Amino acid sequence: MTQSAALHTLLDAAKAWHSALPALSEFVHWPQDLTYTERPPHALPHIAHLTAEPGVASAVSTPLRDAIITAAPYIEWRHTYTEEEVGRDFLNRFGWFELAGPDGHFITNEARLTVGFWGANLHYDWHQHEPEELYSVVSGHGQFMIEDQDTLTLGPEGTRLHLSNQPHALTTTDATILTFVLWRGAGLADPPRMSP
């Protein structure tokens, strides 16, 4: 399989997921200006965890989970944070990529569509960013925290909205979590930052 074939198959699965969950399609429309661009694959240690233990998916989310796993060797995986900020164990079992956006495998300025994976028993500390964000859980489960709001434990098809610059955090317990994340608004190309 070529990178182009793997990424286009993944894009189709993501579009179907976007259509299947009203919260996603209501949050942002599917970008109409998508342009594929070749990016060199960048492997990270978490791929072994993703492949071995991607987490339980629903009937609706299984096609997207499986498309992500199939495309994993062709993806430009990234880390946003340094070892000093999050620790080596976190970096070994975490990774994300931009499927579509200003700097993605598919270029668009209409939204940012990313995928993130966290291994079991990890804490993604308080952070924030200018764009509004909607998380959707593809497989596994995790605890989603927002300042001054109840913590929600979400599994496949669960969603959580984060407002602009609203501090939030994520914790996994006995399972991994694989997420599909949408950003909208100003600052799409900017990275998140740890909250003060």
Rank of each mutant, 00 (worst) to 15 (best):
T2L: 03
T2Q: 01
S4I: 05
S4M: 02
A5H: 07
A5Y: 05
A6Q: 14
D12V: 10
A13P: 02
A20K: 02
P22T: 05
P22E: 03
P22V: 06
A23R: 07
F27Y: 05
Q32K: 11
Q32W: 02
Q32V: 10
Q32D: 10
D33F: 05
Y36Q: 02
T37M: 06
R39D: 00
P40W: 04
H42I: 01
H42M: 03
H46K: 07
H46A: 09
V56N: 06
A57Q: 06
A57F: 08
S58N: 11
L64T: 09
R65I: 13
D66G: 04
I68N: 03
A71Q: 06
A72F: 11
P73C: 09
Y74K: 08
W77R: 04
W77S: 11
R78A: 09
T80K: 05
T80R: 04
Y81R: 12
Y81T: 06
E83V: 14
E84Q: 15
V86C: 09
G87I: 09
D89F: 09
F90D: 05
L91I: 07
L91R: 06
L91N: 07
R93P: 00
W96K: 01
F97W: 11
E98Q: 13
A100H: 10
A100L: 08
P102A: 15
P102R: 14
D103R: 12
G104A: 06
G104W: 02
G104M: 04
F106T: 06
F106D: 06
T108D: 08
T108Y: 12
E110Q: 15
R112I: 05
T114N: 11
F117L: 07
W118T: 01
N121E: 14
N121Q: 13
H123P: 00
Y124R: 03
Q128S: 12
Q128H: 13
H129V: 09
E132T: 12
E133C: 08
S136G: 08
V137Q: 01
V137E: 00
V138L: 08
V138H: 08
G142P: 00
G142M: 06
I146H: 10
D150F: 03
L152M: 15
L154A: 11
L154F: 10
G155Y: 07
P156I: 11
E157K: 13
H162A: 10
N165S: 12
N165A: 11
Q166E: 15
H168I: 03
H168V: 03
A169D: 01
L170A: 03
T172L: 02
D174Y: 03
I177Q: 06
T179A: 14
F180L: 04
F180R: 08
L182M: 14
L182Y: 11
W183F: 13
G185R: 13
A186Q: 12
A186N: 08
D190N: 14
D190H: 12
P191F: 12
R193T: 13
R193E: 10
S195E: 10
S195Q: 10
